[in-house]
Design a protein around this nucleic acid. Structure first.
Lengths: 242, 242
DNA sequence: ACGTATTTGTTCGTATGTATC
DNA sequence: GGATACATACGAACAAATACG
């Protein structure tokens, strides 16, 4: 092993450790998502104080190469997906464009009456039936987004069945006569995850989630569905390009 | 006072308390940002158990009317600003559109050489001089955003002086010959605040910040400046409209 | 639901080498 | 040389989050 530390070479000890770990990550000896040795173990391996090991990890974290979580350890940072939001935004195409394998799982399906807010957004009478689909979006089998989609039920009979058949909102809507739809606006907020988000997204509790509320309309400008999507902020960035 | 609780009216006690507090907020007796009575005090005022008061607060927090911070208390949620991001996005116009009084303070001004990343973004040679302006954006005197703007210094001599004169990036650029500029893309992430963010944005440490990296170009498509803006997630939502 | 072990986060204090005025 | 500031490194103790039986 070349775990040797040069104490008089003019190079800070913590930087030597950071460089060593960085080389391990770059060479693939440590893979994205993998846990690094604990601070205590690193300190022992390199025969330094824990503070010195911590400093090395902090430097790597600052560079975005690792991510440390209290009580759990330090992990090699996974590559972040650029989720591109444009007028025509489709989940599967987006994930494929990032060279990942898209996936989706229907977690819940429910009918509910439109409250005032939802009625205004979908431009339907208050109390009208609304179909909610809750879908977990995945990339390479890792959960990426937890999205609740709200459709005016009267306009799209059989939509839920069509989604179960195809696994795709775009295809399901096509069967219901919506050949195309466009995103009118997206409202982005950040907040801490709820218990539900933690379970679905498999995220640490002390990291925020990105929440995007969006409205999609058909080519005539009529609302088709409203979506509240929650993204794991460690794994997804939202990129807007007009 | 009408702090009386009806124990047999079929309405849950916690809901009565929640309604009471909601009325106080709606009537302006409790103002945005103001701290509510402690759970202990609420329990005493209404002669209920602290758990009951907690339930009322939780219901209000769930509605987004108050925000509870461990160790500090519960606060009336401030009104959130919709920060609209379009091709032509200007801070002052945006804040004014939300019927707030815009303000800006230059926190720091610095020259630095372009690293690889910045050079690529601004389309200048690596090592070229870059002017950084760090600006605190305010609405009604409350800090809203902490933004670092990076300009290719060679192209815009006298820009820093122009900004100090005018207090506006748009006006300063106009003096340097840039009549108009457009936003090419915006990359949005969420993360926890650093010490620097906390100081500038006056935010609780356990709430996330929204970070938006954006590139503005002139009418010929040439990069004019690159920005990293951090928003207090409690006070700002980013709204994207193509 | 609860205690225990593990792991990171924070804050003391101490010492040393280096650069600067 | 002396005084000072600063970054580095080590040690100890405790706090806080997490994992697990």
């Amino acid at each position: 092993m070349t775990n040797d530390i040069d104490r008089h070479g003019g190079k800070a000890v913590w930087r030597q450790i950071a460089d060593h770990l960085e080389a391990d990550i770059m060479a693939g000896r440590l893979k994205p998502g993998e846990r690094l040795a604990t601070e205590h173990d690193l300190a022992r391996q390199f025969a330094v104080n824990r503070h010195t090991a911590r400093r090395a990890l902090a430097a790597l974290a600052d560079m975005g190469m690792v991510r440390t979580e209290q009580g759990r350890g330090s992990f090699v940072q996974e590559h972040v997906i650029d989720y591109r939001v444009r007028r025509r935004t489709r989940f599967s195409e987006n994930i494929s464009a990032a060279r990942r394998e898209p996936g989706g799982r229907l977690l819940d399906e429910r009918d509910l009456p439109a409250d005032e807010d939802l009625a205004a957004k979908l431009d339907i009478p208050r109390g009208s039936p609304v179909l909610m689909l809750r879908i977990l979006g995945e990339a390479d089998g890792r959960p990426i987004s937890l999205a609740s989609h709200y459709f005016p039920k009267d306009r799209f009979p059989g939509l839920a069945d069509a989604f179960r058949d195809t696994g795709s909102i775009t295809k399901a809507l096509a069967r219901c006569g919506v050949a195309d739809y466009l995103r009118r606006h997206t409202r982005v907020t950040a907040r801490m995850p709820r218990a539900e988000d933690l379970r679905a997204l498999q995220q640490p509790a002390n990291r925020p989630i990105l929440q995007a509320e969006s409205l999609n309309v058909d080519t005539d400008g009529r609302p088709v569905f409203f979506t509240v999507a929650r993204f794991a902020s460690d794994r997804v960035q939202l990129v807007f390009e007009p």
